[in-house]
Write a protein that binds this DNA or RNA. Structure first.
Lengths: 222, 222, 222, 222
DNA sequence: CATGAATGAGGTTTCATTCAT
DNA sequence: AATGAATGAAACCTCATTCAT
């Protein structure tokens, strides 16, 4: 995030006005496409509507992007790298896994309120996205993602070794966290405010770490 | 299930050959559509391909279904009711919630191997499905589903009252189970055999009930 | 009309039950087609609907008629010959032209109330009819009609010679009568009962014969 | 008429070349559609043929019109308003009704020679037109037409009060004129030149005003 | 850089007609 | 004689993409 702002400032110094404008237009189109894809879905969205939303002509879209598919591809990459970015940040903080997860989910929650289309695009349009991708690009995209997944799985293995987590299959743990948190984030578990969602995150982490079963005599932490 | 078989047998006795054939053809088309939707997705699938896959003419599809959307709708309803059916069965068995869940997941796992397109259609095509639905049908479909969700949530509440589960928000528990198990089933957590998946289910339930955190001194159940 | 009834009776004596039934079925289909064509128009009418209206299967239509076009052709011929029939009758009565015309219009009026689809089919579907006809059949149909028109024009010439009508171009007189009476019959000049229409016919004939201009003292023609 | 020419000139000054071209293309398509509809009828006409006749692609038709129906609707409105326009003009001239009618019919005759498809479309395609119209648009169209009809009927009433016409039901007079003149114009009463048709119009008006009956000495019968 | 008119391939849908039963 | 499931040609319409301006 910080770096991104830096980039923007740097733009101002390094790039000409022309180039800065071009970048801004590109982003305008991307934002418009994001809104339309989120609202209508990739296949139902038309370039006409995106162009209108972006307040550009249809032809202009092709000055910045190769085709409709490229628009979604770029958006997905942008959203994905946003996540990768702050996962990277969090992993560098050297705090317990549980707190890392909490931070991550809080960040995601924050995004889901600030960038309303974020999860809608990121989760729901995945299927359309992969279907519209050429095999090459799909492989490229997946491998980047898998690399990132692997980092998280390694972190889980680390937490197991450090005695923070039980000695379970780390991929299964990852799958559980991934699926459950996706569900929580996407449906927001009926939260309307960011604050509400934060407390749900605490409940989620409690359930995840301590289980949902009633303990008979000896209490659990928290 | 039992009744369904009965139906089929009764078909043979009650219905004329013409009528039986018509039913069979209808099912052939439905199966073909399921395969094509699973492979290409709803929007990329063409009626040409479905017709070819079903070994019927394109026009024949319209003897059995109103339109493309109707095909997906019918498939989704069929898949949904399959799930509802065995949830109903399981809820009637009067066993602990944990065992109910295990049974449910095993059944789902079994389906995901016998009916290869089941989850692909059920999970991935949801978005396309709802986008392609008229508002009326969408509401109808959702309300049926919500009713079913509510039953499960009530069951969770029951398990809490009986001291089987911790006193947590039942909707959150439901969301967690839902998201995590969807992830497990869909990616199959890298299992290639049904047996493998069964042991993953056990791990899943262990994680879910006992948590993923390392307990310091006092052991956990199971 | 009378002859037609005779035909029917003769059918009973000459034809076998099979043959009589076949004729009846044929007429049922024709009547159904007439109703549907009148309601929807030739192009919007579907054989499905006609079959349903006739309470036969779609395939059965092809046992009695070659194709959709043939249905309309047969209907048109039937309606046309009905008119030709009573024109013939009237021409044989040896009464003044004005009374012949009155009789003819009364007969038409009577038909338009008893056979509700008569004029709808006869007038409105003309265009569709001729468009759907092969050139050969169109010529055949027209020539039959022209022959009949000629008879009427000859009658007008006769009335001129006998001093009943002014010495005007008989084809123009025919056109005037034809157009005006078609308009009267079809829109019925806002009549709802047959009796109403009869008095409009008297007005029509008055206008036609005496003109619409106010006569000052002695009539001038322009 | 005069205004229309003015409009065209103004177009040249006010509108950009792009806009002028677009209007011209729109008219080209409209003209092509008119020719095809006149030749084949609405239902038998295909967009393929219209596009070919207009020397545009099929898709281009949809840049200017919503659908096939819209094409016919626009054409009908254009033709109708042409008639309404000069009826309005004539009504403002303050001349006897008989001369108004003559002027009107002459104008119509002139159109039927200059705009060859005018009457073909206007009269013959009426049925198809109304069948292809949504109820809303049909009502809208009819009410506009009825308003115009009413004006003419009021004019007839005026002519009766001024003693120009006999005291007859004005609607019946209107129906008579309407039907008879439609017949004359459409079949042209076998005229091949405009001049011929003009003399037929004189005959028509003579017949209409003075009747077709031979006057013996004074007064009419009935 | 920006436009938007034009394209045309390809989609869904309809329906007259056929034919095995 | 009667059925109605099946066909397939052809219709209308959409929209991603191109290109002259």
């Amino acid at each position: 995030m910080a770096e991104f702002s830096l980039d923007k400032d740097q733009n101002h110094e390094i790039l000409s006005r022309r180039e800065r404008e071009k970048l801004a237009h590109r982003q305008d189109i991307l934002d418009a496409a994001t809104r339309v894809f989120a609202k209508k879905g990739f296949f139902n969205a038309t370039l006409d509507e995106i162009a209108q939303e972006a307040e550009f002509s249809k032809g202009a879209l092709y000055l910045y992007f190769n085709n409709k598919e490229d628009l979604l591809y770029t958006i997905m990459k942008e959203k994905t790298s946003k996540i990768d970015e702050f996962v990277e940040e969090i992993l560098n903080e050297g705090i317990p896994f549980k707190e890392e997860l909490r931070l991550f989910l809080q960040k995601l929650a924050s995004f889901s309120f600030s960038d309303k289309e974020f999860l809608q695009i990121f989760i729901v349009q995945h299927a359309a996205f992969f279907r519209s991708l050429s095999p090459d690009k799909a492989r490229e995209f997946c491998s980047a993602h898998e690399e990132h997944d692997q980092k998280v799985i390694n972190r889980i293995d680390g937490a197991i070794k450090q005695g923070e987590l039980r000695n379970l299959d780390s991929r299964s743990i990852y799958g559980m966290i991934h699926g459950a948190s996706e569900n929580m984030m996407f449906s927001r578990w009926e939260c309307t405010t960011e604050q509400d969602l934060y407390s749900k995150i605490d409940i989620f982490i409690d359930m995840l770490f301590n289980g949902i079963a009633r303990k008979k005599e000896v209490g659990s932490e928290q």
